[in-house]
Write a protein that binds this DNA or RNA. Structure first.
Lengths: 125, 125
DNA sequence: CTTTATAGTTCATTTGTTCTGAACAAATGC
DNA sequence: GCATTTGTTCAGAACAAATGAACTATAAAG
């Protein structure tokens, strides 16, 4: 197995970070990695997704996140533990990740509201 | 010609904005549109790019920016003027665009420094 | 120490996007 | 009308993403 690539943040173009976080599956994976204090292995992360995805796809998504400097993956025995590198990124690109996170929160709240509106309409009809 | 699509910001997923700004050409185009007070037509924008691109490609890039809610395109006579919608986006996704812009500044400064280091090396050798 | 199981990666193929030249459309002036 | 300018659309080529099958790496059992 080839060594995993963990670039220095200075070598990561902003575009790579935005591209990595432009995909909803990767955002969900990254959110899972950031959320927990403890490190998560790949299958644990996959279990939290809405739709189940093949492990080859999962592996590729995590590679994109890794090569965008967003996560660090370390082998612990037979499994791979993924940790966020958000502190490093925030030091180099200050405010970037928090503002993207906030934007996703805004979007999720709007979706919840839309769903509630639909549900109410369904009841009243 | 079909009508151009200008979605409401609430209907634009964060992922679409990030995807639009993940491409260096689109970032350059968007920067050109934001920078100037006056509206810019497509060929004027194309002229500012490092590498010249075909106008069909330019048109597609501007469509991506438009459908991500980042710009508004209006026909004025024979030409198309492009304006930024950053105020609208900032109202809905506060801080997102400024932090992305700042990250690009950081990246550009780093690139300039790298170039200067290389130039000095070349002189001293 | 060989076998089996588990957790991920890599490869090759299919599927989907993006790029771009050529044809088209819309407005203006002759 | 016809020519010019500015940009869009279409279709095929070039590129990237998704995924099943094969592979690697570690641990633990036999």
């Amino acid at each position: 197995m080839k060594l995993l690539i963990h670039p220095a943040i200075e070598d990561v173009p902003v575009g790579a970070i935005l591209h990595a976080l432009a995909d909803p599956v990767r955002v969900a994976l990254y959110a899972g990695i950031v959320a927990e204090g403890c490190e998560r292995n790949c299958t644990a992360l996959a279990g939290e997704l809405d739709a189940p995805i093949p492990k080859s796809t999962l592996s590729q998504h995590l590679r994109i996140l890794r090569e965008a400097g967003l996560i660090k993956s370390e082998r612990h025995g037979v499994e791979m533990r993924n940790v966020s590198r958000c502190a490093e990124i925030d030091a180099y690109y200050p405010g970037l990740l928090p503002s993207i996170a906030r934007a996703h929160e805004v979007q999720n709240e709007a979706e919840v509201k839309r769903a509630r509106r639909l549900a109410r309409k369904a009841i009243h009809s």
